[in-house]
Design a protein around this nucleic acid. Structure first.
Lengths: 356, 356
DNA sequence: ATGAAAGCGCTAACAT
DNA sequence: ATGTTAGCGCTTTCAT
């Protein structure tokens, strides 16, 4: 005769304990806890709730997930939480997901393809109900991910082929918009500072910058490629503006790099926007507090989050793939030359409070 | 005769399918997948692995967790992922946890006590193996959390009473260190910019600032309290430095606020460090890219992460509570007056790469 | 309105 | 070395 296995004790009070205490069946406890699917007499429900309180019963979401087949968990993969853009996106996605009754398992790929593949695997193993990924992989690499039958939305990935749902910002239009603004200021030699990789959203920014300068009849400006970090922007800025014939303006493809460029310019003794005009891509809160405040092409982070979460929750086996492309918008700061002086940050409110 | 319930189909290929395909028992598949606890013949193992590959089998972590009683998941609650300090801490905790074979469920309380309580509840419901929380609650409120029997480490919480394990930085010593540095520069009236709340780590910073000025025989400087954000620092800075008798130096209790103070000073036409000297608390990467670079009391983020994760994994029912207090250190930047000019950011490397 | 019980996918003790 | 099987805590169908 077989003996049963003895798994480690964890969650001492179970639904059965509550049932026993309240003198009902475990099914009734479920009905009370979940508000259905069967009705429960008011007096019984009260007794059950009382038992739950007295015993300190806490439902086990793991068991529930195993039984129902749904974890109400969304997996999110971003390249770097330390980048304010992704932090803001993660916060927004978390907020939208919470409104829909989902929680988010947030993971950080450190822009490492191998790590990204591993993260996707563990998220799937954890049975997430949906997956949102800002991938660093190329289109063909993405196709190799073990995405099986998990509803997936790729963020800002435009070369993944038709097999994936995508939500992204029109980076090409955004880069054109920002570059055009510098052209409107009369600049004729406009550099591009951009990440070193070949992710599709980077290529799009490069295309937008090229398109704007060319359609204005200007020659292509210099390109400085470096890491998608503050340090990368700093190095790119030093190279670009200490060259023999430095450009008078630059479109920087991310706020983090722009922060680095600002430091480089400061060290080189160049003033913004007087000597060099700058427009950057992202429009994170950090960009509102640089000196001067950056003029930016702002990513519609909230809208992206909402579109992505709603889409991933709507995906079913036979739904056709969708591709949303959101429009970024230009937000004028003090780095482009529109204002003689720095503009107020958005969070500004009349000074109030104590100074003791 | 009873019929069985029919949960929704999800994960089509199960461990039993693999067993059937490889012509072994499901136990053997487990042994192969988990590398134990019983040995498996090499040829059998190969057959099983082949079956796994062919069928595209992916283990179900939910079922595993239910069975073993361990999710290998750590819950983390921080006040605001948008704050670079917490982003850096989250990344560090994630990295340490990964080394120990754990993943992190990261949640954001938005500094809202009610939300924080809810997060703790859902993390416990999700059966995290441990909980790390940078709480905004007071000591007595923390005691009311349904922490039951989940190993918990509180981060930077010093008034939670002896019932909790804690890991934190010595904020009082840090604030003294930073303030003392301004005193060493000859400042006699040193303001404090600090958050409006009453969290214990804020009180500690205030104590440290007070202790340093008093032991130097100086009178207490002005205090500006405002939100723990860039906007809060900006408002505090405007109030503080547009007052009739503005201080010549300030110790700012967070990098984010310091960023706002820098903007306020810029708008008021005051130069740093020439007119006003600044030292701030945190030492995030962002503080290395402000203009000028901030002189900071740097929080030992990596060390905190390691201490917290190791501690939470070591906690058992009968282990006595521990309280680690880590030492922050002063990192000189360009805002205190040590250098005539801005110092190089840490990420600095000799310029290299293309400028096309 | 309530109860009984099967079974989600997995692990591991016990049997062979 | 491999097989059999109970049961983790929960939901839900079917029966009463």
């Amino acid at each position: 005769m077989m003996q049963s296995a003895r798994p480690p004790v964890r969650h001492t009070v179970t639904r059965d304990d509550v049932a026993r205490y309240a003198n009902v069946s475990s099914a009734v406890v479920s009905y009370v806890v979940n508000g259905g699917p069967r009705p429960v007499a008011a007096s019984t429900a009260t007794r059950v709730r009382q038992a739950i309180k007295v015993l300190g019963y806490r439902p086990n979401a793991t068991a529930r997930a195993l039984r129902t087949g749904s974890t109400r968990l969304l997996g999110l993969v971003v390249p770097e939480i330390g980048n304010p853009l992704f932090a803001e996106l993660a916060v927004a996605i978390e907020a939208v997901a919470a409104e829909r009754g989902y929680e988010v398992l947030l993971t950080n790929s450190h822009s490492d393809p191998a790590r990204e593949r591993r993260l996707v695997s563990t998220l799937i193993a954890r049975q997430v109900d949906g997956l949102l990924a800002w991938t660093m992989l190329t289109g063909s690499e993405v196709s190799l991910l073990p995405l099986d039958d998990v509803p997936t939305v790729l963020l800002n990935t435009f070369n993944a082929g038709p097999g994936f749902d995508t939500v992204g910002v029109d980076a090409e239009a955004g880069a054109s918009l920002g570059t055009q603004h510098l052209i409107d200021h009369g600049h004729e030699r406009i550099a591009l500072v951009i990440g070193g990789g070949s992710a599709s959203h980077l290529e799009a920014r490069e295309r937008g910058w090229t398109a704007a300068t060319r359609s204005a009849g200007l020659g292509d400006g210099p390109i400085a490629r470096d890491d998608f970090t503050r340090a990368g922007g700093y190095r790119a800025g030093l190279r670009l503006f200490s060259s023999p014939h430095p450009p008078g303006a630059a479109f920087v493809s991310s706020d983090m790099q722009a922060t680095g460029v600002l430091r480089a310019l400061d060290e080189l003794g160049l003033r913004v926007p007087h000597d060099v005009a700058l427009v950057s891509f992202d429009g994170t809160e950090e960009s509102e507090y640089t000196l001067p405040r950056l003029t930016v092409v702002r990513q519609p982070v909230r809208a992206m989050a909402a579109a992505a979460v709603d889409r991933v929750l709507a995906i079913s086996a036979d739904s056709p793939k969708e591709h949303s492309l959101l429009a970024p918008r230009l937000v004028i700061g003090g780095s482009c030359g529109c204002h003689g002086r720095v503009t107020k940050p958005e969070g500004y409110e009349r000074p109030a409070g104590r100074v003791s």
